[in-house]
Every structure is written in structure tokens, then in C-alpha cells.
Write a protein that binds this DNA or RNA. Structure first.
Lengths: 201, 201
DNA sequence: TCGTTCTGTGAACAACTGTTCACAAATAAA
DNA sequence: TTTATTTGTGAACAGTTGTTCACAGAACGA
């Protein structure tokens, strides 16, 4: 195949072409079964071209991760910080995150199914956006505690993890059932997180 | 190396030798990076021997999974069914599960870090023990609802998933921090699950 | 003890895939 | 138009690893 005119697509665009293709292929096959060949073909480039834009397979993978987490985080911060009430902050966080995952199903698959793989784990959690994400969760929990929304005997890190775990669990289930919109799940999640499953006393 | 006398170890024992070794190596390196050679060496057999007991790498991997889940499930059922009170059933479930994970750290690593991998997921969830495990969770939730411990507006499948997600999250965190005993975490988990993070009203 | 059967061995095979690189095409400069 | 530079190409390379199989040793029955 011959490289046709792509002058209108500058370097950044080509890079994001490949990232988009990678997102799709990684989501479909998983990290190990996804081949550079697959990704290149999906992006309509030759195999070698990928290596003009990314150092190696790992570099591509983690670039994808960091990119998306950075996007999600900045989006969340922007929307959530508009609110004052802690309870509403949590709800807005959920709404925006759900919306983001709905628009980025492929990434969500990668994030959930692969994001906790042994060798991946530390690199993701240890990356700058990964840490920032976790820090932000902790900050929200702390705020909730100060404003008397969240019990003050809870460890913020743990509580943040559980918040996100519930979010992930509900989204996974929803995707499995093939249900459409995630948007209206925020109250369900808040219910589990804030009120628990017990009956009111 | 020459095969020395192993007449005292019958076929089942040899099979479980390999399973034990596999558990360790899979936990250490993850499914893809674990090689049959590694596993055979760990079990003190030659490479080919593994294939006398398991069809292929996948077969070995899923045999390991099913084995352990079956063990955990029968253990849980035995202990939990002794109790009458739904609240106590949940606590006993947690205690036993935590104890099991503490004694089977390697398996827990595989279960959590690799168990949700794309190609693994369906096969685990779809396996007989996998389905039975999920069914049992659902049964517990339903019972909790009948006994007025758990809100009746919640979907049992979803609620069961969240119960287990919270359990996993707390155990992961505990392992990361390198803390010792998991046993006393059951109340923490019950707190998150039953009462939620909100303040009492 | 001898022969038959079962089991373990590990070198060899085959397939796969990340990565490179000599070459070609496209673009920009002259 | 001609030359230089940048970018894309995909066949070839190299390393890895799941799997097989011809052989050898152990176990067992007679």
C-alpha cells in the first residue's frame, strides 16, 4: 500500500489516530492479544509507523491510559468544583463520570478489565494522572467528612476506593446487560455508597 | 534429570503439585508472563509432564480457578448455613472469606488482578463454580431482604456484586499496605455495605 | 528375572509477535 | 524542475514460548 496525501493531518493528529485505534483494539482483545499489526491496520497505517510515534507497545498503552485519565479528571474537577454542597458534588462527580464512560466504553473496558493487571497496576497507579485521580477522590471524601456528610471515622483513601469500586461494579453490570444510558445510575450508586443497603432506622 | 521414585505420590497428588506450582507462578508473573517451563520447574517436573495432567495452559489455569472457587464456596456454605440471623450470616461469610484469602494470597492475587481480564472473565463467570458462587451471593441478599436486614428495593444480583466488590477493595488495600491479619476487617466491610458512609440520621 | 506398560523427560518444532531498517513515496526547499 | 528531507512501508529478524514426541527409566505382573 502506498502512503497517500496526509499533509492535512499533522503529527498530533496522526498520533491520536493511532491512540484511537489502540483504544479500540486493546478494548477488544486485551493488552496481550492486541498486536501492533492489528492496531496499525485499524489506524490504516503500516506496522512500522506506530514506532514513529511511540517508543514501544508499552509506551502506546500507557500513553492511552494517561491521556484518558487526564481528560476524565480535568472534566470532573471543572464540573464538580462549581458546586458547594458536598452531597451534590458527589452526585455531579457520578453524573460526569458515568457520562464519560458512556462515551468512552472502549476505554472503560481497558480501565476495568486490564487496569488492574499485575504489571500494569503499579505503573498506572504510580503515574501522575493515576495518583492525581486518587488524590482527588480522597479530597472529596475529606470534604464530605468536614461537611458532616460522610462519617468521620472512615479512612479517606479506603472510602474513596470503595466509592469508585461501587461505581465500576454498577457500570460493568449495566454494560453486561447491554442497557443504554448510564446517566440515571448516579442515584443508585449514591444510595449504595452513602446509605448502604441496610434499612433506615 | 532422572525421574526418581514417586510411587507414593499418586496421580491426584501430582496434579495438585502442578496446581500448587501454577498458583504460585501465575500469581507472581500473571497469566501471560507465566510460562509452562516456570510452572514445571516450580513443581519439580519437566516441561512435558505438565501436559500429561492438563490439556494446555488454559486448562491448567481454569482448573486452578474452579478448584479454588469450589473450595471457598463449600467452606462458606458450610459455615454460613449454621447461622440463623441474616446479619450474622453476612459477618460469618466475611470472616470465612477473609480467612480463606489470607491463607490463599496467591490465589487472591490471581482472582483479583487477572480474574477480570477480558478473555478470562466470561469463562470464569460462566463456569459452574463461578455461577454457583454468584447464585449463593444472590441467595444471601434475598434472605437479607426477607428478614428485613437489606432494603427490598435493591436488585439482589447488583447488591451481591457490590458486597463482593467492597470485600475485594478492602482486601486489596490491606495487602498493598502489607498489613497482617484480615480477620478483623469484617466489621469494616459490613459497615460500608450495610450502613454506608453517611452519618446516621 | 524378564517383558510389558505407564510415566517423565527435555530437546526440537512451529507459530507468533515486538521491533528494526533498507527502501520508497511524499513533501518542502531551492 | 530538481534536490533534499521527512515520513510511511512492510518484509525480515530475533526472541519467546506453547506444544509435541522419540526416548529412557520406573513400576508392575508373571
Amino acid at each position: 500500500m502506498v502512503a497517500f496525501n496526509r499533509k492535512e493531518r499533522d503529527k498530533k493528529l496522526r498520533r491520536s489516530d493511532i491512540l484511537r485505534a489502540a483504544e479500540h483494539v486493546f478494548a477488544l482483545r486485551g493488552y496481550h492479544k492486541a498486536t501492533i499489526r492489528d492496531i496499525a491496520r485499524e489506524a490504516q497505517y503500516a506496522t512500522g509507523t506506530v514506532y514513529l510515534h511511540f517508543k514501544d507497545k508499552d509506551d502506546l498503552y500507557f500513553a492511552l491510559f494517561e491521556n484518558k485519565i487526564k481528560m476524565l479528571l480535568s472534566l470532573l474537577k471543572e464540573r464538580v468544583e462549581r458546586e458547594e454542597d458536598s452531597r451534590i458534588k458527589l452526585r455531579v462527580f457520578l453524573r460526569e463520570a458515568l457520562d464519560f464512560f458512556e462515551k468512552n466504553k472502549d476505554f472503560f473496558r481497558i480501565f476495568v478489565y486490564e487496569g488492574s493487571q499485575i504489571y500494569t497496576e503499579d505503573r498506572i497507579a504510580g503515574s501522575v494522572p493515576g495518583r492525581q485521580f486518587k488524590e482527588y477522590l480522597i479530597k472529596l471524601v475529606r470534604e464530605g467528612q468536614e461537611r458532616r456528610i460522610i462519617r468521620s471515622d472512615l479512612i479517606p483513601g479506603q472510602t474513596g476506593d470503595i466509592f469508585f469500586a461501587i461505581l465500576k461494579t454498577v457500570v460493568i453490570e449495566c454494560f453486561k446487560l447491554g442497557k443504554g444510558s448510564l446517566t440515571d445510575l448516579s442515584d443508585t450508586i449514591l444510595g449504595y455508597f452513602v446509605d448502604g443497603v441496610g434499612r433506615r432506622r
